[in-house]
Design a binder for these strands. Structure first.
Lengths: 210, 210
DNA sequence: GTCTATACTGTGATAGAC
DNA sequence: GTCTATCACAGTATAGAC
């Protein structure tokens, strides 16, 4: 009795409603802040009463959980889509990765707060929602290894450096560029510490090595 | 009618009650988390009912505000008390400053969250409570200038680096040492970028330059 | 299955008696 | 100052309409 057209349509409708609710929740979070999200307001935006949300989510934290998974999945998709376009030169590659994370973080502050900080009191992401975050870390590990940073400490130092730039930007000058402009300098500093090769001098020819 | 012994005693008693309330609030925050703090529980710990707290604080956020100011003031006092004992050699000095901030942050997570992140929904610190934080930044600016890092970018890079180490430690391994152990490496990396002099080779003599 | 109405508990905050 | 009583609003459990 599973997989019939009727059940497919029901499941699709159900999933569509879930997405509507999550979208509404993002809208409320962006407008009033992540912690100020209320079920009544989310419900009102999708034309329901608050208790009706419990037909689709077990609790308010389950909504946060779905949002958490969606956010990390969006970043994972971005990472995978961008990968072929990344520059081959190690330093430029690391800078591009750092700027990608930075820009994604700064573009939607409540999303970034949910992804990284423990802003919500009793919320801990489920293993399922956390999975894409693990995959992002794995992609980063590969990128760093490719650039010549193979030990775990180099990885930890990179994440600390980039997340530190983001957190300072958001805390002290949200919407600004003061710490974003430091990314190039910061990554060069990092690459020097790892003895990564300096970028080759610019030439017009030989854009690809055969 | 101000400054009489009776008014002094009243003011002291009033200030003592305020401190009792703040201490109770810290205890609740450490036990249940900063955001899970409730006026009823704070009041119970000082033998009151919740509405009585409004005789001493205008709102719940006013309690957070007093906690915020107290926390930064405690760190400022620590910084000033430690200053004469800091090593003179620039790199060692920067490492000591970084470890001091790191250890203070990690020692009391709710305190650090209140000091740096926007964990509380509608809370913005007052100018008065923020003052000691500004002084801490000023001390840091002096320390960095003394070590040879005089531009604003160097300051921003330092704060990003250290706060990044803290945030990664707290997010991924609270109570551990994984990122703390990176402080030496991170600060050396930073000092190299600023072309600070390398530390002198260890000798038993000449511990001070005449 | 999906939604509503209702109600329970707990929150920060206010009003007024003592 | 501190109390009791009360309010508006939150999350959420339950029962029942369709």
């Amino acid at each position: 009795m599973i997989g019939t057209p009727i059940n497919d349509r029901k499941a699709k409708r159900r999933e569509a409603t879930r997405l509507e609710i999550i979208d509404a929740a993002w809208a409320v979070a962006r407008q009033h802040g992540l912690a100020a999200l209320t079920l009544r307001e989310v419900a009102a935006r999708v034309g329901m009463r608050a208790p009706s949300l419990y037909s689709h989510f077990d609790s308010k934290n389950a909504i946060y959980d779905a949002m958490f998974g969606q956010a990390w999945h969006a970043f994972l998709d971005l990472v995978d889509a961008t990968d072929p376009d990344l520059p081959g030169e190690p330093r430029a590659r690391l800078k591009a990765v750092a700027r990608q994370f930075f820009d994604f973080a700064v573009a939607d502050v409540p999303r970034y707060q949910l992804m990284t900080q423990q802003v919500i009191a009793g919320f801990t992401p489920s293993a399922e929602a956390y999975a894409p975050a693990v995959q992002v870390i794995e992609r980063l590990r590969q990128t760093l290894a490719q650039a010549g940073a193979r030990d775990d400490q180099a990885m930890d130092l990179f994440t600390a450096l980039v997340s530190g730039l983001v957190s300072q930007q958001l805390a002290n000058e949200p919407g600004g560029q003061r710490w974003r402009r430091l990314i190039g300098r910061a990554i060069d500093m990092y690459a020097d510490e790892l003895n990564l090769p300096a970028p080759p001098p610019r030439t017009t020819a030989a854009r690809r090595t055969p």
